[in-house]
Amino acid sequence: MTYSTITSSTDTLLQVNNVSVYYGSVLALRDVFLDIPKQQVTAFIGPSGCGKSTLLRCFNRMNDLIPGARVEGKISYRGKDLYDSDVDAVEVRRRVGMVFQKPNPFPKSIYDNVAFGARIGNSKENLDELVERSLRSAALWDEVKDKLKASGLSLSGGQQQRLCIARAIAMQPEVILMDEPCSALDPISTLRIEDLMHKLKQQYTIVIVTHNMQQASRVSDMTAFFNAEAAEGGNRFGYLVEYDKTGAIFNSPQQQATQDYVSGRFG
């Protein structure tokens, strides 16, 4: 097993240094080294159980919510270890937003959904402006501007997902994590969200987990391929196989496993 750690010309925002994740005593992800560049889209691809979502959830410490989850190694955000004892997970999550696989707007109005982050953060900002700006950034404003008081759940699946993106943007985070954001959406909604990602990376650093390799090749600048391996006792753990510019991963991968996976000859 070899790791190719690419140091790109752009700034590194998140640095994953020899990270292993355990759930209880079960190893889920082993020895990952990875640098996530600023204001680019980084895609994690790989088969189920390869730990890509697990790693994503380390970036905003959502793994803290799973009893028994444990992270070894170091994940630095702007040079600061996210798992340092003096780091407040709540503060981390305000800077690192997340969009989930299944759209999960709160059962509140569209307006209240977007304003949620500002309200809990006691932001003094003008909420109307913030809501409009965030909805515009998420390419949803024109569709909902006349029904901001309507429930977020009344929207279609694709609109709900864009509402969740708007909600994350409204927190003014630096990083947006997306955990298979389009897997529950139809192709047209998927396309809209991919377009959106291209726009968003002007301002935000995006890390996306996807099962869809075409999607990874369309939206991402960097791609990390993870694979799973059976450990003793029947459990499977994931590891990073290859990490490179997206073009290189899809056209001239260094590893045979990557080649097999991206060309569909996996397993």
């Binding site: 919510l65 999550r93 305000r94 989930f100 999960n104 709160f106 059962p107 509140k108 953060g121 927190m171």
Partner: peptide, 26 residues
Amino acid sequence: PPELRQGAMAMGATRWETIIRVLIPA
């Protein structure tokens, strides 16, 4: 749905904010 709690926590809500502002209203 557990997604609600996760969504609120991921928005940087504390446990109490999650309970008071999302779970109980829901």
